[in-house]
Structure formats: C-alpha cells, structure tokens
C-alpha cells in the first residue's frame, strides 16, 4: 500500500464506527455458533447475517467516507498526484479496513468452528461482497454531488440487492412459469452479487433445499464446477466494472 492508502487505512481503523462494526459481527457470529445445535445450521445463520449486514455497512460507510473526504481529496489534488492514483488509494484504504473489520469480527469464529473449504468460502464471499459494495458505493459517490442523495441511493441499492431483487425475481418466475425461462433465471441470478455469493455458499454446504428454484436451475443448467467458475467471474466483474466507471468519472470531475 502506498502512503495515502496507509493514512486512510489507519484513519478508518481508528474510527468508532468500524470498531462497532467489528464488535457486532463478532458478537453475532459467536452467538450463532454457540446457540445453534449443529455446525451446518450455525454456518447457515452466519451466512445469512453476513450477506445481509456486510453489504449495508460497506455501501453506507464507503459512500459517507467519500463525501466526508472531499477536503482531503481537494487538498491532495492540488499537489502533483495523479487522479487515478488518489482514487485507487482511497479504494484500497476504505476496502482494506472494512475487510479487516470483517476478517477479525466474523472471520475468526468461522475459522475456529469450521476450518475447511466451507469456512474459507464464506470468508471469501464476505470479502468479495465488501469489495463489491465499496466499488458500487464509490460509483454512487462520484456520480452524485449531493451527500443526502448519495446516501439515499446506497441504502436503496442495498434494499434492492438484499430484499427487492429476490421478490421481483420470484414474481417474474411465477408470472412466466408457463414459458421456458431457465436461461432468463440464470441470467437474473448472475446480475445480483448477493445472490451469487449466497448460491456459492449453499452449493458448498450442499443444502439443496435452501437453494431455491433459481439455484436449482442454476446448478442443473450449468453443472456445479462450471457454475462455480462462472459465478466467480461475475463476482470479480462486479468489483471491477463499477470501480472502473467511477475512476473514469473521477478523472474528469470538477472539484468544487
């Protein structure tokens, strides 16, 4: 990490909000492992909590951080520093500290209880979702100058991907259940990173009942190895594409 990213990283680690995030994740993970009678149930609970809370925190925190760093950004841009370098340092600083809080909070109990492929997969998905959410948050923050609009958009984004998307998908599936819509289902699933991450973990846990209709179609359609590779590619695309677009906009943005 370069100098600027390091400063941002420590600045965020010192803040109270990341500490609270870490504490909440740790508490919830430990409690769900201790209270559920079987390990797989515990893992399932943790998965649901992780896939619900991590995107919210990463989206909101990153968006707010960018708006609050306006002064910092202006100060550094009047120095001989490339805009791309500043933006990537910001991204590195924000996402690394969020990942760190996740790894320490949820990662440790997961690895203690399940030191195997499943445990590592859940952690990888948590990190992946953090990176994706930060990337989307950067895009939102660079596109809207108004802080309250930006924060509203990132909350909407979270609602959409964690709750609304599934509801809309279900509705569509029921409406068009008479038609062969397998490919459409797979495509729709690909377009939601949270669903993709959940599917990955469910396939690993081998709880086919929890896969749901779309998940069943997905594995049936593509076979588990190929679908794993494909969903990893899509998850990486979800990190890279919003970030690249935000970088491009930031390169030409007027700093008021």
């Amino acid at each position: 990490m370069n100098n600027i990213a390091r400063i941002i990283f420590f600045d965020i680690l010192k803040s109270k909000i990341t500490f609270v995030y870490f504490i909440v994740l740790a508490l919830v993970s430990w409690i769900s492992f201790l209270l559920e009678e079987s390990l797989s149930k515990g893992l399932l609970t943790v998965t649901y909590i992780v896939l619900f809370s991590v995107p919210l925190m990463a989206l909101l925190y990153s968006t707010i951080y960018i708006y609050n760093s306006k002064e910092f950004i202006t100060l550094l841009l009047s120095q001989p520093i490339k805009r791309g370098k500043l933006w990537s340092s910001l991204y590195a600083g924000v996402s690394t500290s969020l990942c760190m809080a996740f790894l320490l909070g949820a990662g440790i109990p997961i690895l203690i209880y399940s030191f195997n492929g499943t445990g590592f997969l859940i952690i990888a998905m948590g990190v992946g979702i953090t990176l994706i959410s930060a990337s989307i948050a950067f895009l939102i923050a660079v596109m809207t100058d108004d802080k309250s609009v930006g924060i509203g958009l990132s909350i909407l984004c979270w609602l959409f991907f964690t709750l609304l998307y599934d509801a809309i998908m279900m509705f569509l599936l029921f409406q068009f259940s008479d038609y062969p819509i397998d490919i459409l289902t797979v495509l729709l699933l690909m377009l939601n990173p949270v669903d993709l991450a959940r599917l990955q973990i469910m396939m690993q846990l081998d709880v086919s009942a929890m896969l749901g209709y779309s998940g069943a179609v997905f594995t049936h359609f593509l076979g588990s190895t190929f679908s794993t590779i494909l969903s990893f590619i899509f998850l990486i695309a979800w990190i890279v594409i919003p970030y690249r677009i935000s970088l491009k906009i930031f390169g030409k943005k007027d700093i008021a």
């Binding site: 100098n3 600027i4 400063i7 600045d11 010192k14 760093s69 306006k70 002064e71 910092f72 202006t74 100060l75 550094l76 009047s78 120095q79 001989p80 520093i81």
Partner: peptide, 29 residues
C-alpha cells in the same frame, strides 16, 4: 502541479488530522 504552490480561498483540511500530520501528509506526496 510540481511547479505550483496553491493557497485556496477557503481551505478545508481533514478535520481529524493534526497540524503536524497535515504537513507530513503533504510532504509524503
């Protein structure tokens, strides 16, 4: 911008940074 020193109209600095660290930050660039 290596050739330019700039003093903005209403300078805004990161609020949590100490004076010393602000200078250190700019030097580190």
């Amino acid at each position: 911008r290596e050739l330019i020193g700039f003093m903005p109209q209403s300078a805004n600095f990161p609020k949590n940074l100490s004076v010393e660290n602000t200078f250190r930050l700019i030097r580190s660039v």
